[in-house]
Design a protein around this nucleic acid. Sequence first.
DNA 1: GGTGAAAACCTTACTCT
DNA 2: AGAGTAAGGTTTTCACC
Lengths: 176, 176
Amino acid sequence: MPTTPTKRLDKIDIAILSTLQKNARITNTELARVVNLSTTPCFNRVRNIENLGLIKQQVTLLNPERLGLNLNVFISVSLERQVEDALRSFEEAISVRPEVMECYLMTGDADYLLRVVVPDTKALERFILDHLTKVKGVSNIRSSFALKQVRYKTELPLPANGMTLPDEESAPQEWL
Amino acid sequence: MPTTPTKRLDKIDIAILSTLQKNARITNTELARVVNLSTTPCFNRVRNIENLGLIKQQVTLLNPERLGLNLNVFISVSLERQVEDALRSFEEAISVRPEVMECYLMTGDADYLLRVVVPDTKALERFILDHLTKVKGVSNIRSSFALKQVRYKTELPLPANGMTLPDEESAPQEWL
DNA sequence: GGTGAAAACCTTACTCT
DNA sequence: AGAGTAAGGTTTTCACC
């Protein structure tokens, strides 16, 4: 058995990731200062992190309230029969709708859980009637409203003392 | 009645917001090119958008799979009695745990819905036993696993043709 | 890894339209 | 409001320790 070709992230790499997660616009100069490196090695580490495919995207988070997007709704959707084809067409239909922030296929009876952001209940109604119910195979829809967003963050939890990366694409594991 | 002091975002402002939502690291020069403006007015508009408080944060999104964070779990938590004090202490306890990505207070019987990201079921168990069940007032915990993250985005839906901003802080509306 | 310096590029302010 | 220009500052790269 060959030694695993996993890369190891040390404490400094983690500190860089952690800092970038909180601030995408930090300059290399300041990042270097934060992690106690000079600019060149810091720059090289960031490049290495990018090459490892650890960074998905750098984005701007807007204030939903200031934009009048005051409604967070969780919608449970059940499909009649979980034929792979029905799942695929549901996922495609959902993925073009801008108000669908998140969508998960859940354990259980082929249920999807959606988080939808809309300005008001009128817009929610339009989304459900015009888009959700029109998808073939949708059988049950249940909406729950969020009274309050207690927490929302994009920062993933990272181990404080370095880590070994899992083999990239451990081939979606085919069990016997 | 005085005229409402709402600001209006035109098509170009929306285009800027939309572009920034997708890319936090775009330079002003390139942003200007994208929205068909020269750098100066583009720069001024971005500054105006910042001053309106529309931008919450600029962040780096990491790849959870590449980091071995393969488990998305939704946890419904019910509190015994929804005394305001119990709610507050639950929210505080939850807000220091790095694995809690999202937390919503839902309509119904003072239920919270959490989205938690962990590397494996062991870590989930530790979170539930060491942190959730130890919070005073927690009565019921129900976990659902996500088999697949069909969609995850941070980009809020914006109207294509401009919009009027709602009055800022329309005083958390006190009804009689 | 670290240093220093040079090239390229960005930001920002001023002025004119 | 937007365009052009130019000064000043940063980032990024390169050669070398």
